[in-house]
Design a protein around this nucleic acid. Sequence first.
DNA 1: CACCATGTTCCTTG
DNA 2: CCAAGGAACATGGT
Length: 283
Amino acid sequence: MPELPEVEVLVRHLRPQLRGKIIRAVHVRRTKVLQPTTPRELQRALAGAKFKNVTRRGKHLLFELRSPAAGKDFQLLGHLGMTGRMFLARKKEPLPKHAAVILDLGTEHFIYEDTRYFGRLTLDTSAVEKLGPEPWDAAFLPEEFRRQLKKSRQPVKVKLLDQSLVAGVGNIYASEALFRAGLSPRRAANRISRAEARKLLSAIRAVLQEAIDGGSTLPLNFQTGESDGLFYFGRAAGAPDYFSERLNVYDRAGKPCIHCGAAIRRIVQAARSTFFCPHCQKR
DNA sequence: CACCATGTTCCTTG
DNA sequence: CCAAGGAACATGGT
């Protein structure tokens, strides 16, 4: 999926577009993405509701709505899974092949499209309660981070994907953060020192923030799939091709490390690819 | 045909 | 009950 930075960039893009818009009708093409909400429940809740705001928690999008009929506010939770996209399009535009849910906003459609249907658009917001702290939570101190790492013997790379540890880190930025911190992805989580925990938390924050900054600066295309594999969203027509230099280790197996020139290695941990520099990231 | 993919959840095992 | 490992979900690209 889109990890925290991509979701944050999307939220900033959608917020001004959705605010104040009213949902006229709801079309569910793939029931699976709603569960445990039923299509009927979704229609009943959303028809006539107005978008008040859009926020992010971890990799989840939170749509805040107001229902005039019921006279109360409620939330809709979105998750892009591995291949989800959410965007507004003119009604005359053809719907994408894998459109899962379409919200009729009057003059436009709000489309949730997802090739593999791993994502969610649901009234069940309970997933958010299981998340760990946001990376920038001021109360999330390196000591607390280390205390949590101490509880696991898993490799630190695998542990970083645990959303109850820190919310929002995914497979790409886990490798990027460890490279930035100079820590081996194979190091057991419970063998990380105080200094290393501090470094790793800073690296996570830096790597995510840089990605958000990059994504919010550039003209992006939220509808198309041509993302270069380097930033989840595609480039808008005429936008600079600077994506190719954004990631330092992810998907760079065999290529030289930007610091020492050693060949970047790819290994498999918990059935996911991990990339690292064997020279700069020793055990 | 084989393997790979930005994620999460469920099931099994110990 | 818990941690850890692996399969499953579903589709497409190389």
